[in-house]
Design a protein around this nucleic acid. Structure first.
Length: 198
DNA sequence: TCAACGATTCCT
DNA sequence: GGAATCGTTGAT
């Protein structure tokens, strides 16, 4: 069953990030249904986190959706090439989000391969924040601000992982965030090969 | 209006 | 190790 609004509205974005691991993300784009298990995530906090786009009340056209109530998608273009998919959490004006960094394909694998121009199934298909968005057909213009209880994109519930099944590390690519770059807010499923990097 | 840069990926 | 590539951002 679809994860409900209450899942996303909780206050502790780190806790929500951990619980997102093992859940399944579904998209239905141009009539093609795809789904994949979320294997790697990072937490970003709207308060006291220099790595977050919405840090220090930073409010622009791009970050605006982070200030909405949890349960919507924050998608943005990175390096002019890659769409990165985030899950907005917490209540209005909190600006917390969970970045999905890697997934394990489940349904619609042929569709994912076509979108990624791959002829074999391996981790290059969707183990990375940019590649998974491409595999799932997530595009900035279509998915920015979209409800995660919509028919286009949603998460399906699954049992939470045990602590010993989760590996914790610092976040990737946020060296500019000074002391906040040290926050242990990246989480991935232990022994799962569908990870962006070790 | 303009220049710099980035929560990355892929090729050499 | 370095290029690709462009929307967002903050400063002119």
């Amino acid at each position: 069953m679809k994860l409900q609004k209450s899942f996303y509205l909780r206050e502790n974005v780190v806790q929500v990030a951990k619980e997102v691991l093992g859940k399944t993300v579904h998209t239905c784009v141009n009539g093609y249904h795809t789904s994949a298990i979320i294997t790697e995530v990072e937490a970003y906090s709207g308060r006291n986190d220099k790595a977050c786009h919405a840090n220090n009340g930073m409010r622009t056209k791009r970050t605006e959706i982070m200030y909405a109530r949890g349960g919507v998608a924050y998608v943005y273009l990175c390096y002019g090439i890659h769409h990165l998919f985030n899950i907005v959490t917490n209540g209005r004006n909190k600006a917390d989000a969970v970045l999905v960094r890697a997934v394990q394909p489940v349904e619609g694998i042929e569709t994912m391969m076509k979108r990624r121009q791959k002829v074999e199934v391996d981790k290059s298909l969707c183990s990375g924040p940019g590649t998974l968005s491409q595999a799932l057909g997530i595009h900035t213009r279509e998915h920015y601000g979209l409800s995660l209880l919509s028919e286009h994109i949603w998460l399906e519930d699954a049992p939470c992982l045990k602590e010993h099944e989760i590996v914790t590390s610092t976040r990737v690519g946020v060296d500019y965030a000074e002391e906040d770059a040290l926050k242990p807010w990246r989480f991935y499923i232990k022994d799962n090969p569908w990870i962006s990097r070790k």
